[in-house]
Every structure is written in C-alpha cells, then in structure tokens.
Amino acid sequence: MRIDLTDTTASKVNKALVQGRRAIGTPAVGMVLTMVIVTDEENAYDAIKAAEEASHEHPSRTLVVIKRHARNLRDRTRSHLDAEVRVGSEAGTGETVVLRMYGEVSEHADSVVLPLLLPDAPVVVWWPVDAPDNPAKDPLGALAQRRITDLYAVEHPMEVLQARVRSYAPGDTDLAWTRLTLWRSMLAAALDQARVPVISAAVEAEADNPAAELLARWLEARLDVRVDRVVTDGPVITAVRLGTANGEIVIDRPEGPLATLTLPGQPPRSLALKVRPTSELIAEELRRLDADEMYAIALRGEATKETPVHV
C-alpha cells in the first residue's frame, strides 16, 4: 500500500503509517530499528531497494531523506515537505517513508526525522553518496548508534579516507570495509592453518581502491609487517600474498566469484569469493550495532603486536 502526502508534516506522516498498517491488517509494529537513508533523487531507487531487501533479515522502518534543489524562486522561498508512505509488500517486511524536503525545511531534516523514529529502537543512518565530512557531528548522524558511509561513492576516495581517520567516532563504519569481510575471514583461516609467522605481505588491486587500502592497513596492524600496495588492472582486489619462511600464502582472485588459495606445501584449492550486492552489505552492518573496533584499527593503522589475526 502506498499513501502520498503533499505539503505535509511529520505528525501527518505518523498518522498515515498507522492508517496504512491498519488497512493491510497488521497494526502491530514488529520492527527492530530505524534506518535513515540520506540520498539524492538519482540514487534513491537503488538505496531503497537495498534497504528493503535487507529488511527481510532486519525488519525496520526506513526513512529516506531527499533534499530537493529549488527549481525557481518560489521553491527557494517556500519551505515544505512531501512524503510517500509505503507499507506491506511495497516496503519489504517493514515500512518505508520517502521524505522530499524543499526550502528551509531541508536544512533542518533532523527535526522532521526525529518524531518518526521508532521508540526505544536503534537508529542507523546511511549515506549512499555525499556523506558529511564528520558523520558523527552531522545533525542526522547524531541521532544514530551506527553511521554508514561508502568510500566507493566518492571522487577521491584516498583523500576522503584520510578525512575519515581524523573524524572517526565509535559507531562509524564504511561499506568499503564491509566488502572485506570474506577476504578477512579467509586470510584469518589461512593463517590459522599455516601457523607460521608472516614476514612480508602485499595487497594487489586496482589503483586508488579504498577497500584494498583498508585491507593493507588491517594486515599491517594485525601482523606488524609492512604491506606493499601493488597496482593491477583489477577489478577491485585481485590478490593478497603473505610471505613466510615456508613459502607464500596466496589468495588470488583475478576475476569472477572464485578465488584460489595456496598454502605452503599444499595443493591450490578454490574458494567462493564473490562481490556481494549492497543489500547484503547493509544486512551485515545491521547484525551488530556496537562500535566496529576492527574498522577503527584498520582506518587508523594502529599496530597491535603479538595479537592473533581475527575479523
């Protein structure tokens, strides 16, 4: 069911949510969190689709904040809110509210969002594009326990990565880091099998790949070795090589969803290492809402000597 509201208020949106749930025969709210998506019109469709797919694992109220640019003088001087309320099959397993803000109201999006948050439930804010320089100090980010950005969506990811180091606060994370979960799990498992000290390391990836840089920093921090950054044609990360006294530990994925793991003294074997869709990345981030300490370590490149590698 879909309800369109023009020149509305947060109070009327709340009433429409209640009306919609009653109309489809499910008045009880069984959602576990509020997801706030801050995006533009161009990227809204893909972000909403990813959030709705993730809601099958984490039923949530999704609030989509779209700040519309003024098309004429009247729009610049007139402040108003349009909303689109979706419940039932239109919104995955939760509720979706698309909030289009015009004029001055777009400068105070937090005052619109605050009354629409689920009571006594965690809040997650996700910026698919155009994240603020300091997510934790952003008015919307300040409402959240978890703040999700994406270095893949910026023009100069390495510069923004350094800015993230300076602005990091507990609760921040980035989908470039989430994309590394399978890589980190496989590397940790390979090191458990090899049980030998690593004396050299290299990460091979396309140029200026933020996930590759985070992976290299994580390895440096956890293994206390220098990690070489090797530029390849990609796509994304193509290989990780860990040198030991017994030979190299290698995970090689030149293309496609399969990688090859090679351990010293053992025959190569294939591993599934696919590039996951955004919906899976978001679902993973919603499984735990406490501070991601491993992301902080990788972001800052903090050395942790004699600490076992874990994900």
Rank of each mutant, 00 (worst) to 15 (best):
V18E: 14
I66H: 15
G25W: 09
E95R: 01
Y152C: 03
I199C: 14
E255M: 11
Y45D: 15
T96L: 03
L219D: 13
G265M: 14
D46C: 01
T178L: 00
G256T: 12
K67W: 07
R184K: 06
A136Q: 00
I199S: 13
R74A: 09
A245V: 12
D172P: 04
W177R: 07
R100M: 01
L281H: 13
G141P: 10
S111W: 02
I237Q: 07
H58T: 15
S79E: 14
V165L: 04
T304E: 08
I3C: 00
D228I: 06
D174A: 05
V123D: 07
L187Y: 11
H108P: 00
S185T: 09
V98K: 12
T62W: 04
Y45P: 08
T173G: 08
H80Y: 14
R195A: 15
L33N: 10
T307Q: 04
I237W: 01
D290L: 03
S279M: 07
G88R: 12
G20N: 07
D4W: 11
T307H: 02
L242C: 15
K15D: 14
R71P: 01
D208A: 14
I24D: 05
R253V: 01
S279D: 08
R253S: 06
D133S: 13
P115Y: 03
I282R: 05
L214D: 09
D292W: 13
G92D: 04
T93L: 14
I24Y: 08
R300K: 12
E41I: 00
M31F: 03
Q162Y: 09
E213Q: 13
D120R: 10
L219K: 10
S185L: 13
T260I: 15
G171R: 02
R166F: 04
E42W: 08
T232Y: 04
V275G: 07
T278P: 03
S200N: 11
L17E: 12
R253K: 09
E306F: 03
T304I: 08
A259R: 06
A245N: 13
S200P: 04
Q266N: 09
M101I: 12
W177K: 02
E53H: 03
I237P: 02
T307G: 03
E213I: 14
Y295P: 02
L215W: 07
N246C: 07
D290S: 11
A283Y: 05
A136C: 04
P170F: 09
A16S: 04
L33M: 12
E206V: 03
G265D: 03
V29F: 11
T173Q: 05
D233W: 07
T96D: 03
A239E: 13
A216K: 01
T181E: 15
R179C: 10
G20L: 00
T96C: 08
L161F: 10
G301Y: 06
A201V: 11
